[in-house]
Design a protein around this nucleic acid. Sequence first.
DNA 1: ATTTCATCCTGGAGGC
DNA 2: TGCCTCCAGGATGAAA
Length: 308
Amino acid sequence: MPELPEVENIAAGLRREIIGRPIERIEILTPGMIRGPYRRRWRKTAAALHQTVFRGVRRRAKRLILVTDGPFALLVQLGMTGKFLLAGAGTKDQRHVRFTINFSDGGTLRYIDLRRFGSLWFLDSPELTGTGGRDSPTDCNGLVSLNDHDLDILDEWMRQVGLERLGPEANRIKTTELAGILTGSRPIKSLLLDQARIAGLGNIYADESLFDARIHPLSRACDLKPGNIKELRNSMRRVLRRAIEQGGTTFSDYRNAYGQMGRFGAMLKVYRRAGESCRRCGRAIERIRISGRSSHFCPFCQPLLTVD
DNA sequence: ATTTCATCCTGGAGGC
DNA sequence: TGCCTCCAGGATGAAA
């Protein structure tokens, strides 16, 4: 469910609300969601975080990392339906709570995940309390500017516990990097969903970016011309930036940490609009299946790219 | 080595 | 009302 813009918004909310607050206790109701080397020792590991303090909240692609001043950081992959809710947000929603963090000040943060596709990882944070543990300064949009050094540190933590390695962030990727990734004869759509190549896009923003760049989702990656690649890079950044500004996209489950819905759904051009008219040319949006996922596009605005 | 496919879950929508 | 099928924002391990 949550793609880069949704996770960014959750991270922003948590960053405002939990940094500096001492953890009284972490209660894990669904231990089955724990992955990685601490899976078997989860009780002891969670207990080691009692009385520690949150120092930072990071996002790497769709992953959320809660940094503490204790021996571990928490990494959460939200899957399709995972969400964090701060105390007071959606309190009537008591079902499917997978773990809770109780703060010494009496507040609570709940992780809720209907379908249980989400996962929780404990990351070693030995020398973290130095530079890596603090949050970087935020930019004018309130986003944390993740510099390359921070990114390397995060990737190293994730590598240590066996998380799948990620490609460059979709909203920061350079045209040259994108050109190096978009090779071979697979459809461009399936490459954009491959987190090892380019990280952060999901089905919504892959479709929206391709529409914005006027590229048919079935176009073979090797048939993209340099102009298409540059256009696609610009489109991904533009679409993701707007989606972040609008608080992400909510169909049913997604909420930010305050329980609020995203507003970007009203601005979608193709996703889930099959049969409706294209906002650019008026023709009907189509839906096809590509590697098991539905893809939405305008057959007129997004002609299939071929070699001459 | 790559790439596709089923699978992990629950719930909502729509057909009959 | 009930039963059925299909669908969903993701990731992954097995199989081809």
